[in-house]
Design a protein around this nucleic acid. Structure first.
Lengths: 208, 208
DNA sequence: ATGCATACTGTAATTATATACAGTATCGAG
DNA sequence: CTCGATACTGTATATAATTACAGTATGCAT
């Protein structure tokens, strides 16, 4: 899509307005939000965004701005997280799905595709989309998205002094114990919900 | 909400416009769509819809129509299904959530709140919202929403001649075997996905 | 029988909005 | 250096849109 930083800001503003107010902004509203003294500045941004395929403009209609595929607002779906990359880096976003913000409490910032069965007994299965609320703090026992030495993992968090336990919910897996004095741990967010796109792929849990 | 048939038509039109064009309609657009010769007819409908709590109007703003909770388009969430009632009867709808239609395949028609742990080993837990695609046919082994003698249940469907087995995914529960010659069975739909709103309420599956 | 909510037509004024044209300034590529 | 793209200010105008006021007609409840 190749937008300039400014154009990306404008696009984000349009997405926010649609999400919050249920209607696209006018040229004047964009200008006001960015401090432009002329609505024409907004008009030119819109035209450039249209030329680059991010939006479609409907001539003559007020608020005639439509987001096109790829620019549609929605929760980003993060797939495999590459080492050293921030979790919401543009390259990691597989898709965006429009989900009602009111579906989860607190609201989700992104979806993370879960790999493996380490949280099986908490009802989180391989391939599930975990709804994650971005925060650096988490209560004891909460399911968190944590980054330990460039690897992102979903586990239950327990903290005792300077030791943190990342506990899976599957007896086939072992807890990860981390000494915060030697190993940095970053909490990327807390799990607030789950979306599963296919039910048939779920292998039955057996009592073996 | 108690809308008149006409008001409901207007509300539906607003929902359609938002879904199709990404912006609420103007008074004139409503008037044109319904053949009104005066935009004021639309204006009065909007006011009545606002008075009844279906929408909120933003004074002065063009297209300043917001859908309020309950009027928002989206997948209906069906709670407890009363005996004898069709599953999508208005009284059963607890809420509506805007979900991306592309999230599930085939697409979901409604969400059903699951009661009990009878499908636990298929990853479906008490309180989960099951995304359901409305159909009367289901392949063997699929997870279906079925109605047997006025009770709605979620199970795996297996058919052998005139006998149908509704098999739970939890060894603590027993299969329900139905002879179609004596007992009517209706398939209300097939499960196509799952949404879980809270992860902490999930009791761990133990190997007891 | 009377009043009230619903469901419109018709007119009009004000404000909101889109959009064209003429400029200015900056920056990176050729 | 020069050109084109970006990022604006400033002015202006046609039209899109909201919204008020004055009516008409119908059905339903009191």
């Amino acid at each position: 899509m190749d937008l300039t930083p400014r154009q990306r800001q404008i696009l984000t503003f349009i997405q926010q307005q649609i999400a919050e107010l249920g209607r696209p902004p006018t040229r004047s509203e964009i200008a006001r939000a960015f401090g432009f003294r002329s609505a024409n500045a907004a008009q030119e941004h819109l035209r450039n965004l249209e030329r680059k395929g991010a939006i479609a403009l409907t001539g003559g209609a007020s608020r005639g701005i439509r987001l096109l595929a790829g620019a549609a607002a929605g929760l980003p779906l993060v797939g495999r997280v590459a080492a050293g990359q921030p979790i919401l880096a543009e390259e990691q976003i597989e898709a965006r799905y429009a989900l009602d913000p009111g579906l989860f409490h607190p609201h989700a910032h992104y979806l993370l595709r879960v790999r493996g069965e380490s949280m099986r007994d908490a009802g989180i299965r391989d391939g599930d989309l975990l709804a994650v609320h971005r925060t650096r703090e988490a209560g004891d026992g909460r399911i968190v998205v944590a980054r330990v030495e460039d690897e992102v993992t979903v586990k239950r968090l327990y903290r005792k002094g300077h030791e943190v336990e990342l506990r899976p919910a599957n007896p086939a897996f072992e807890s990860l114990r981390i000494d915060l004095r030697s190993t940095p741990l970053e909490i990327e967010g807390i799990a607030v919900g789950l979306v599963r796109q296919a039910l048939d792929s779920i292998a039955p849990v057996s009592l073996d």
